[in-house]
Amino acid sequence: MFTVLRNELIAPRLHRILVLAPRIATARQAGQFVMVRASEGEERIPLTIGDADSAQGTITLFVQAIGAGTQKIVSLQPGSSLQDVAGPLGMPTEIETWGRVVCVGGGVGTAVLYPMAKALAAAGNSVTTIIGGRTKSLIILADELAEFCQAVRITTDDGSAGTKGFVTSELKSLIEAPDSRPSTVFAVGPVPMMRAVTELTRSYAIPTVVSLNPIMIDGTGMCGGCRVQIGGEAKFACVDGPEFDGHLVDFEGLAKRLRMYEKHEEACRLSGN
C-alpha cells in the first residue's frame, strides 16, 4: 500500500498527488512512469512520475480525471492509500546539453512534459515551453514551469489565455526567428498535436522527441498491448519508450489503437460519473 500524503486540485479535474513510495523515489529518472491501481479490481493506469524527492521517499503524480480509473485515483484523500504503485517503468529521457530546446505540452501532456523540461533545464539547456489547451482553465502547470524555463508561452483555441491559436503557430514563430530557433523539440500531448508538431519540425529538420501514450496493461513488456510502429518496426512503448523520435512514429496507427475501447469507456464514464 502506498500512502497518499497530499492531494490538491490545481486545475479543473487535474490533481497533484504526493505519494509515499521510497524505492521508486530513489530509482526514478525523468521520463519514467508508474502503473497505479487505486484499489482491488481497478485497472492499472500508467502515470508519469512528475517529480520525486528521494530524501522524503515521495513521488508526485499529476493526474487528470478523465475516466473511471483516474477518477478513483484523484478521489483518494490524504492518509488513505493507493493499492498498487509499480515502477519506475520505461526508459528515462535522454538528457543532453542541446543548448536551446522547446518543450510543447498539450492538455494533460503538460504533466508528462513537466519532469522532462525540469531535467533538461537542470542539465543546462535553455528551455522555452509552449502550453496549449482549448481554453484557459485547461492550461496547467504554467507557474511551476516558469520557475525553471526561459519563457513559458500559452496558446488557447478560444483566446481566453495567451495567444489565440495552436501550439504549432507559436512553435513556428520560435523556429523562424534566428535567435530562438531550437536545436531539439520535445512534444507531449494528444496524438493530433504531436503529429502536427512533428510535421512542422520535419520540414525544418529539427530533431523532435515525443512521449507516446498507448493503452498499457502491465507496463513491463509482457502483454504487447502498447506496441507502436516506429520507423516501420514494432516497439513496446512501456519498455522501449515511452519517448521516441517523433519523425519515425506512425501516429495514425497509434490513434486507431487508442480508440479500440472507446465504446467500453463511454460506458465506464457514464456509470462512473
Partner: peptide, 10 residues
Amino acid sequence: ECNVIIGKTL
C-alpha cells in the same frame, strides 16, 4: 512483495 520490478525498482 508485489509491485517490485527487478531491473527497475531495484
